[in-house]
Design a protein around this nucleic acid. Sequence first.
RNA 1: GCCGGCGUGGCGAAAUGGCAGACGCAAGGGACUUAAAAUCCCUUAUUCCGAAAGGAGUGUGCGGGUUCGAGUCCCGCCGCCGGCACCA
Length: 851
Amino acid sequence: MSTQRKQYPFSEFEPRWQQHWLEVDAFRAVNPGDADFDASKPKYYILDMFPYPSGDGLHVGHVEGYTATDILARFHRMQGFNVLHPMGWDAFGLPAEQYAIKTGQHPRVTTARNIDNFRRQLQAVGFSYDWQREVSTTDPAYFRWTQWIFLQLYNAWFNPSSRKAEPISTYTGSDPDSVRLAYVAEMPVNWCPQLGTVLANEEIVDGKSEVGGFPVERRPLRQWMLRITAFADRLLEGLDGLDWPEGIKLLQRNWIGRSEGALVRFAIQNSDCHVEVFTTRPDTLFGATYMILAPEHLLVASITTPDQAECVEKYKASVASKSDLDRTELNKEKSGVFTGAFAINPVNGNKIPVWIADYVLMGYGTGAIMAVPAHDERDYEFATKFQLPILEVVKNEGGTDGIPPSASSCFSGEGVAVNSGFLDGLPTAEAKQKITAWLEEKALGRGTVNYKLRDWLFSRQRYWGEPFPIVWESGRHHALSNTELPVIQPDMEDFKPTGTPEPPLSKATDWLRYSDKAQRETNTMPQWAGSCWYYLRFCDATNSNKFIGTEADQYWMAQSGKPGGVDLYVGGTEHAVLHLLYARFWHKALHDLGHIATPEPFQRLVNQGMILGPDGQKMSKSRGNVVTPDSVISEYGADSLRLYEMFMGPLEQMKPWSMKGVEGVYRFLARVWRLAMEENQEGQWILSRDLAEIPLNSQQLRTAHATIKKVTSDIRQLAFNTAISQMMVFTNEFVNAKPRPIESLRILIPLLSPFAPHLAEEIWSRLGFSGLASKQPWPTHDESLLVENEVELAVQVNGKVRERLVISKDATKEEIEKAALASEKVREATAGQSIVKVVVVPGKLVNIVAK
RNA sequence: GCCGGCGUGGCGAAAUGGCAGACGCAAGGGACUUAAAAUCCCUUAUUCCGAAAGGAGUGUGCGGGUUCGAGUCCCGCCGCCGGCACCA
């Protein structure tokens, strides 16, 4: 193929137009206050998930989402919108640091190199980004504001009565450090003794280090945390106003994992201790026949009886040594030991044994449960194994689901309370209310809400990330002032781990020393930090006084009046939970504190599907099925790459790559080229001599206007594949027309321009039309040209097509019915039967029901 | 296990409850050419009847249902893909 003659000279004109667009700054987004700002234009903010600039370069998967947004950006510009379509780099991260450790090159150097490569590749696809707004999370001019936002969180708390983040100054309690949105806690980190380093969760596969496959331990370390849990309800409620795929909303809801229930206090027999449990089924309290604490629970040591001490210690040790892998994979079988202690069931005074078991997690609820084996699968399994009593307290009344009511197996659904004293006879929902009220009255418990969502562990023991704007003095943390930002990592030659859980920055002794008394924080922020707010920075990328100017925020984020500021956000599903949740959290906090106008960052979200290799497998180096954009561009051109990625199928769908498919769209583009151009004797491309200034005939007019209509509505629905099909239909219609109306190109080229912008510009300028094709107003269609005088209807008898009928478009239902019944074929098909009913759908078909 | 998503020709796919398979790929045939490439034209879901023109039937994972009419809506299965995974 590469030796073949090119069907149109894309390699000559594609780089030329890319250069031209850059030179004239063709896709600049205009901010309010700029000289050429036009307030009458509506704004449209369309955002890609910015890439991590890896050493491997751009992937065809990136190009898919980026092409979709590029088409929409170009389309909206042509429709008169002021379009913000920016690009940047999420450039902090592990690969750069690991590469630095291996080669001794500073991550700044390799990162800059990778960014240059990514930028070159993106420009070679012809994306219409406003490059003036390019940002990199690793740029001190950028991360100074990431650090500034961290300080906003540090200096704020969540006021439960206003349900908002507020300045810490409004907090009246005694210990502000206990309520800050950014706080310090002892939390377990992933420590790998063999590698002598702390690992990020992403570096752990199946409980072992990704590199080397060594076991990983959890080890407590002082960590920065962000209080995202305070926003759990707001993050949940905020989803309702967003135009996101329901599946993604559900994923976030499940991740937040809100559940309503009650806290119940159980006294421990012969002890001052009491244990609090969380349950979603307080109505089953009468059925609690034993209790379980997580092995790590603080009370375990104090309540364990001497004769049980040894086996409790043994069990705790065995649990502690279990890797994450063991915990998930080997825990199918229930295990646990008796502590020797008994608790008192507050509702009936029964003495119930207290066990420890690792199926109870310290991290959820209170780390302790009341076990109701008759109505909980796990408790049932445990009770059966250890022969603990099972008491039925909920009757499965209806039996509608086919499960027979039974006391010998577990029933976890809702029903009617039995064996439950004053709850007897109440349906589950009422029983819950009554028992909760009873507990509250007796001060034995209260209704409460629990979440699966944990606070965000925000520090990393890494070099290549944002340093915290924090210093430590006599064991206390202090925020640096805004004027001390940015805090830049020291230049180090040795990025290697310290061999202890201390971060690499602890080795930079000069940098570490802030003053005689104070030392800098040596942790850095996780990679998520920079991506939590980059969409705000794009609105006002060069502002050196604020992270985003008020006017820019008002215009780009708030003008549409919807909760979310970004009009469309496109990216892969891999960010469905974490990135999108973290960004929403920061956004809400910044909103509460009065820094930005909107309550949500992203109004509409679309996930592009993964592109698989030609073999239908996920693309990977080891499989050798990776297709690179560069190779496609050099053989078929950027327009073919763009067009193929959009023609493959629906954007959201997973689909395999096919080079033959690329050739198909390449042939289509060549046909478009030949609508305008032909080769002369010398083999040069000249304007086609078939072109003429003649009007379109009625058939051509109909096709042209149908194409305008379909392409326009398909782009709006992100149905790019069918928009392209329609342009193929158009081209097939005109390619053989001789003479060929020049007008056909005046219509087609603007429509094609968002998809294949280089070819569009080239043809447009060769035809001598003025301006850039990408700056033309979007064509509009005339509905009246679409209607045909005569329409063909299908005539069905009992749902089967028997005849076709050509009839005037204005024919009445009665006329159509009459004509259909008059048909010979219909008479044959209905012979010997009586006609029961005739359904006429004007413009479509007639269905005759006969018996 | 739980929660999502998806099952349509040889392949990628299309189809506001209204003629299933648009558009493209692949395949086959033809035109042009000394030849090849490129280009252009035709055929192409499947079974049966027919020499042919043409005709009849069957088809959207499987089984039911609603409807004049179902790829599309409802119920129950099967399969594939993705996410979560003892969350009390």
